[in-house]
């Protein structure tokens, strides 16, 4: 554990909590892509199957259980409790494609051809692109509520901080997992446009609206 990793995890945790608070307080999931949330739930489910086989630390186990439980809770809120507020007609990204491509890539490029390892690799590839339906939705509507943009900023920062963590681990521990690193770079890269808008608009108290 190093400081980048810890702040990254806290940022991830903050993102999830911000999203749950936004939905719960406003009694609405408007502006949130249910498809991205489904993909994140699939990511956590496939990656954290090792909860049953591999103990790392109390911290690790607690975080995994929280991420799993909160992602299923989010899905429940979007598709059941507050489904009347879900903007289905704006959430039109073909997310099946992301799953298919991630499955194929995981089968072709992995560290070891075993079930758990391929599921882990799939979750890494899928996570890299899971935000695309959400970003697509914002592009389509041309705006996002400020709480939604805080959520996206925290979520995007998390993988960026992991990149610093990987650089640190490479130099200090000699540890390098290029599947996670390359996917993490792609994942962070997808947020670049959003980060720019967030820093230039939301941080100055304006709403996140896309330039026409």
């Amino acid at each position: 554990m190093n400081v980048f990793r810890l702040i990254g995890d806290m940022s991830h945790l903050a993102a999830i909590i911000i999203l749950l608070i936004k939905i719960w307080r406003s009694r609405s999931c408007s502006g949130i892509s249910g498809k991205s949330q489904l993909l994140f739930t699939a990511v956590f489910t496939c990656r954290y199957l090792d909860l049953f086989t591999n103990f790392v630390s109390i911290y690790n186990t607690t975080m995994k259980i929280f991420f799993l439980a909160s992602s299923y809770a989010t899905i429940y809120l979007i598709f059941m409790k507050f489904k009347a507020t879900y903007n289905r007609n704006h959430d039109t990204f073909r997310f099946e494609l992301l799953i298919v491509v991630s499955v194929i890539l995981a089968l072709l490029i992995n560290h070891e051809f075993s079930a758990t390892e391929i599921l882990w690799t799939f979750s890494i590839y899928l996570e890299a692109v899971a935000i695309l339906p959400q970003l697509f939705m914002i592009t389509k509507t041309g705006e996002a509520e400020s709480i939604t943009s805080h959520y996206l900023f925290a979520l995007g920062s998390y993988r960026g901080l992991y990149i610093l963590n990987w650089i640190y681990r490479y130099y200090v521990e000699g540890h390098l997992d290029w599947i996670a690193v390359l996917s993490g770079i792609v994942q962070t890269g997808l947020y670049c446009d959003f980060f720019y808008l967030y820093i230039t608009r939301v941080m100055k108290g304006k709403n996140l609206t896309l330039p026409a």
Binding site: D9, H12, D50, N60, H111, W120, N165, D177, A180
Partner: peptide, 10 residues
């Protein structure tokens, strides 16, 4: 097996 080496991340 790689898992014990790097799947300590979230």
């Amino acid at each position: 097996y790689h898992a014990d080496r790097y799947h300590d991340e979230l």
